[in-house]
């Protein structure tokens, strides 16, 4: 049976990394905030994705 943590983790890790890279490369900002939203949100997403992948790995060993 498919472990849902695997595809979810993969999706957020890929999206998160893409956002972080885009946040570093692209200097444009949203009209109402000076924060680099892509970089921070991408970081959180990547961390979440990696945690899910680690949990999936631990789950498959058990």
């Amino acid at each position: 049976m498919l472990d849902l943590r695997l595809p979810s983790g993969l999706f957020f890790a890929i999206t998160g990394i893409a956002l972080m890279v885009y946040g570093i490369v692209d200097s444009s900002r949203a009209p109402l905030t000076a924060a680099n939203v892509n970089l921070y949100a991408g970081g959180v997403m990547t961390a979440f994705g990696v945690i899910l992948l680690l949990l999936a790995r631990r789950g498959s060993k058990a």
Binding site: L19, D26, S28, R29, P31, V37, N38, G42, M45
Partner: peptide, 10 residues
Amino acid sequence: QFYPSGMLGV
């Protein structure tokens, strides 16, 4: 207003 391209997609 608050999301740049990228986060807007999310």
